[in-house]
Structure formats: structure tokens, C-alpha cells
Design a protein around this nucleic acid. Structure first.
Length: 159
DNA sequence: GCCAACGTTGGC
DNA sequence: GCCAACGTTGGC
């Protein structure tokens, strides 16, 4: 059993297929409803100040899909978003070190999947959400993606 | 509100 | 380059 860096798990998707991610936000600061209200314009995912999270964003491609997770309040996956702009300098950063992607809302989770649900599902036990609670931008494997979509009442083929 | 986990900073 | 101190995140 070899240990692999977290990022390597996300890059296994086949060429041409989107990669999958999970983005956290405190709904107090910026909620799923806030992103939906932005419509097609989407929103730059600013404020990330963690190198691993930043590197995950730099690895994103346009069209990649992500779960939108509400941290602190709710503690559940509430929607699906899509990367609409590659990583670019974070306008909220003066140092030039930090970047952000833009995301748009794609679909509600008909049944939000809670952190408790995730922790109670053995197939999801390797998710960063469980193993690295503080990482705010995380890769999700295709298997985890399908599992979570089904748990949330979504058909992953229709996204 | 507390506190564990963990990432970052800065002194040496 | 180490590591103690500090700050922040986020679950509980």
C-alpha cells in the first residue's frame, strides 16, 4: 500500500473528462444561494490562503466540476459548481502569491449530503473532507463523485 | 465558545 | 533548516 500525495488522486481522471473537486465556504461569508444569484457571471473564488488549496485551483481546468460545501453552518454538500475561468491572480491579495479560479452554479443537490453522511460511508473514508478537515479546496475522485451524486439524488451523467 | 489540528511565520 | 509561537479553521 503506497502513500500518494493528495493531488495525485485527482489527476487520475481520463483525458477529456472533467476532474472533480470540493470547495468549502462558510455560508455566513458566501453561500450557495449567493453563488446561484451570480448566475452565468459566476464568482472568483477569492480568499484562499493555503498553498495546497491554491495548487489544487491551479490544477483546475475549465469545465471541471466541484461540490459546494457549507462549512461550520450546515456542514453539508449543497450544490454542484463548474470552473469557468482558470486560475488567475486573486484580486483580494496584495502579495501576488495567491490565485483563484472562477466558478458558476450548475445544480442544487436535491438531498444535501451531510458531513455525518460522508463519515458514515466507508467508500468516502479517504476523502480530504474526512482526513484533512481544514483543506478548503480538495480533489475528489471520480468514484467519490459518483457516490456523492447518487447520495444527493443527482444523476452524475446529467451534469 | 472551546479546543484540536494544522499551516505559517520568524528567530536562531 | 529547525522548531516554537502564533493564527486560523472548523467540528463539536
Amino acid at each position: 500500500m503506497s502513500k500518494k500525495p493528495t493531488l495525485a488522486r485527482a489527476t487520475k481522471s481520463k483525458a477529456g473528462e472533467p476532474a472533480y473537486w470540493l470547495l468549502k465556504s462558510e455560508p455566513d461569508a458566501f453561500s450557495w444561494d449567493d453563488l446561484k444569484a451570480k448566475g452565468k457571471a459566476g464568482e472568483p473564488w477569492t480568499g484562499v490562503r493555503n498553498f495546497l488549496a491554491r495548487n489544487n485551483m491551479k490544477a483546475m481546468k475549465i469545465g471541471d466540476l466541484g461540490f459546494f460545501y457549507h462549512s461550520n453552518i450546515g456542514k453539508e454538500i449543497v450544490g454542484i459548481c463548474k470552473v469557468s475561468a482558470l486560475a488567475h491572480p486573486d484580486p483580494s491579495d496584495d502579495t501576488g502569491k495567491w490565485e483563484c479560479v472562477d466558478v458558476v452554479a450548475v445544480a442544487d443537490m436535491p438531498k444535501p449530503v451531510t458531513l455525518v453522511d460522508v463519515k458514515g460511508t466507508p467508500a468516502l473514508s479517504r476523502m480530504s473532507l474526512v482526513t484533512s478537515a481544514r483543506l478548503s479546496v480538495q480533489p475528489v475522485t471520480p468514484e467519490e463523485w459518483r457516490t456523492l451524486c447518487k447520495m444527493g439524488g443527482l444523476d452524475p451523467r446529467k451534469l
